[in-house]
């Protein structure tokens, strides 16, 4: 602490000897105002807005990058059958099924960039249980009384048929923060 104290004293005394107060105050003021303004600049803010967010990086090696594997990064809270094993993909329903517009929404971290993304687990409905690639990860899932973060209930709302077939995981955008239940 004494060394730190001496270093600060030396620096400020030296500065006082060699500079005028007015110029110092002018520069100090500039630094304060400039520093305070930096967080207000619109730098990269657009990327945080889900409506303007770009696609999530998918260049991931191993199971976390495979949409037909339960460990695929988007499936962190999934409880169901992967549409990518049932004739559809991780973002589209198999033929003959209808994607439910009402969904379970949460966040998953993408290992490619370390960011959280908002994920929508839409169920595909209208055909009987697909029966392939059952996954049950449930990260951030909550009991049935916390309905909008529960994946045990049938999410075939808003569709012609309430028969569950499989689930997809659609990226809705970048999450500024992970869902609070994690």
């Amino acid at each position: 602490m004494i060394l730190l104290d001496r270093w600060f004293e030396g620096m400020t005394r030296g500065l006082a000897r060699r500079s005028g107060r007015r110029s110092f105050l002018a520069r100090l003021g500039l630094g304060l105002v400039g520093g305070a303004a930096v967080p207000l600049l619109p730098v990269a803010r657009a990327a945080q807005d889900p409506a303007r967010a770009g696609a999530a990086p998918e260049n991931i090696d191993g199971p976390a990058g495979d949409p037909q594997d339960c460990e695929y990064w988007r499936y962190c809270a999934i409880d169901g059958l992967l549409c990518s094993c049932c004739g559809g993909s991780h973002t589209s329903c198999p033929p003959g099924t209808e994607m439910a517009p009402v969904t379970w929404v949460g966040t998953c971290r993408n290992p490619a960039d370390g960011k959280d993304y908002i994920i929508s687990y839409n169920d595909c409905c209208g055909k009987t249980f697909c029966g392939r690639c059952f996954c049950n990860r449930n990260e951030g899932e909550r009991p049935a009384y916390h309905w909008y973060r529960n994946n045990d209930i049938n999410w075939c709302y808003g569709t012609k048929s309430q028969i569950y077939h499989c689930s997809v995981a659609v990226v809705l955008g970048v999450a500024v923060e992970g869902q609070p239940e994690k």
């Binding site: 009402v102 908002i118 809705l172 955008g173």
Partner: peptide, 18 residues
């Protein structure tokens, strides 16, 4: 980081209200 209302809507509301 500042969280926009649109962000909160997408994460907490849009699943049901679309």
């Amino acid at each position: 980081a500042e969280v926009s209302p649109r962000h909160d809507y997408v994460l907490h509301c849009s699943g049901c209200h679309r």
